[in-house]
Amino acid sequence: MLALLAALGARTPDWWHGYELMKETGLASGTIYPLLMRMTEQGLVEAEWREPEQPGRPPRHAYRLTAAGLALARQQNDLQDAPGGAAVPA
C-alpha cells in the first residue's frame, strides 16, 4: 500500500491507469487491484471512467488520491524523510 500511495502521491493531481501503476510500482495486478479497491472504499483514492484512447477498446478506469489520501501520502513521506523515521504499517 505504501508503494502505491507513494506512486499516486508523486504525480498528484494527475490520474493514473491501473497498468501504469503496475509498471511504476512493480506490483502485480493481483496486488494492485485489491489495494485500489480497499483504498477507494477507505476514501483514500478516487476513480473515474475514461474514454478509450483507441476505438474498439473498452473504457479505462483512472485513479488519483483524494485529499485524505494525499494527506496520508505526505504524512508518510515526512515520516520516511525524518531522521530515524519509521514507516506507518500498511
Binding site: 502485480a28 487491484y33 485489491p34 479505462r60
Partner: peptide, 28 residues
C-alpha cells in the same frame, strides 16, 4: 472493478503481458 481489469487487459495484451496480467487478476 471487473470492467476496470478488462479495460487494462487490452493494454496489457498490446504490451505482450496479457497472460501474466490475467493470472494476477485471477489470484487477486
Amino acid at each position: 472493478w471487473a470492467q476496470a481489469m478488462q479495460g487494462e487487459f487490452a493494454v496489457a495484451e498490446a504490451d505482450g503481458r496479457a497472460l501474466r496480467f490475467a493470472c494476477g487478476c485471477l489470484l487477486g
